[in-house]
Design a protein around this nucleic acid. Structure first.
Length: 383
DNA sequence: TCTGGGGTCCTAGGACCC
DNA sequence: TCTGGGGTCCTAGGACCC
């Protein structure tokens, strides 16, 4: 039996969930994002499901009216036409598409749909790896229909089941491994399916940019370009030893395998969290001395949230850390490992303050974060 | 008025131990 | 008078992903 791995990616997930609530926004440019909530949340609280769909278009906040920090988290396909996409600063997005409607991020709502679509998949195919709120890997190898037409039949079935239950569409790639499946799910977005076989690598994968490999980001792409390597095929043509010499043992070997479509990583069904953190960017840059009271308040809130997150999830940790971002966007972190595990707000706060004493506070700050790492299950024997 | 927030993994140096 | 090798933990920074 050949290994068939699917990667399933929900289409414009946050935006699509918002359109379920506000169908009147369908086909309009809509942007989800913003560091701060807008008045829209109030609308949502008063309104019931039925009345939400009757909110007139002119009542929705426009991107052009937004002032402040933040980035685009997701944009509808209509907004993407204007060049507005994920990670773009909202002020820049407003220049490209001022008429776009801006909605705040509502994670609770997205989480509900996330659970729903994953439950549907698990019902059909039990070997699923969770890769965040809107995507998963699925092992098709031993599932009924998982081999037919290379996985297309099962992919179609899952797409339909998800759509029927939620009204949401997704794109699926099916391939011999996770690496290729992940690439394939991009091929026919939205609401598409792509099937990749081992024999397709040369023709279908090699012409693509190296950046399409999950794990090659902007930095690695730049470095590769410096050597004249732009496509995956060019990368595959490099000598293994040359790659190791220039990228290190591990990365070099990985690049070589990835470019040749080789990937043996298993589907991981369960995993334990490594750290829990909270961070916030301020509405305006703050000064350690002048804005001390405000910073202290924010630090306390972050510690309370991290502590509550740990307790809710049932974990304790022993490495407490802080993160600062200065007004020039440079970040620093400090952390300290305690002799015992904790989820206690006061302990976290006290340790975070000690960490803060070890950083320079001359420059103005734009962000503060608190992290607890080195986690173990609360009440576990190791504690 | 550029640039969110929550994560994971890797590297690399130093401490410390055997 | 010079100086091992391996292993683990801690810390800081950075790349990358969703």
């Amino acid at each position: 039996m050949t290994r068939r791995i699917a990667h399933l990616d929900m289409d414009a997930f946050y935006a699509s969930v918002e359109l379920l609530r506000y169908p009147q926004l369908k086909d309009l440019p809509v942007v989800i994002g913003g560091a701060r909530r807008t008045e829209d949340e109030t609308l949502r609280k008063i309104g019931e499901e039925l009345t939400l769909s009757r909110i007139p278009l002119k009542a929705f906040p426009r991107l052009a009216d937004y002032t402040g920090r933040g980035v685009v988290t997701t944009a509808t396909y209509a907004a993407r036409q204007f060049g507005v996409g994920s990670a773009l600063g909202l002020m820049k997005a407003a220049k490209l598409c001022p008429q776009a409607i801006l909605l705040p991020v509502d994670f609770n709502e997205y989480r509900k749909y996330s659970h729903a679509f994953k439950a549907i998949i698990l019902d059909i195919a039990p070997l699923m790896e969770d890769r965040g709120i809107d995507e998963v890997y699925i092992d098709f190898s031993h599932v009924h229909g998982g081999q037919r037409e290379g996985g297309r039949v099962l992919a179609r079935l899952i797409q339909k089941a998800i759509f029927d239950a939620t009204g949401l569409t997704c794109s699926v790639g099916v391939a011999p491994n996770k690496l290729l499946a992940k690439m394939a799910s991009e091929f026919n977005k939205p609401n598409g399916i792509a099937i990749v076989y081992e024999t397709d690598v040369q023709e279908g994968i090699w012409p693509l940019a190296c950046r399409k490999i999950n794990g090659i980001g902007p930095k690695a792409e730049e470095k590769l370009k410096k050597y004249g390597i732009e496509t995956i095929g060019q990368l595959a043509a490099q000598d293994l030893q040359w790659l190791i010499d220039h990228f290190g043992q591990k990365t070099g070997a990985w690049l070589h395998d990835a470019a040749n479509g080789r990937d043996e990583r298993p589907i991981v069904l369960e995993s334990e969290p490594v750290s829990v953190s909270r961070e916030t960017s301020f509405e305006r840059d703050l000064h350690a001395v002048r804005d001390k009271a405000q910073l202290t308040r924010i630090l306390t809130e972050l510690c309370e949230k991290v502590s509550a997150d740990l307790q809710r999830k049932g974990y304790v940790g022993k490495t407490i850390g802080i993160k600062l971002r200065y007004d020039d966007f440079k970040s620093v972190t400090r952390d300290q490992t305690l002799p015992t595990y904790t989820d206690n707000t006061q302990t976290i706060r006290r340790t975070a303050r000690l960490c803060l004493r070890r950083v320079s506070l001359e420059q103005r700050l734009r962000l503060l974060g608190v992290r607890v790492g080195n986690l173990t299950k609360a009440g576990s024997p190791e504690r």
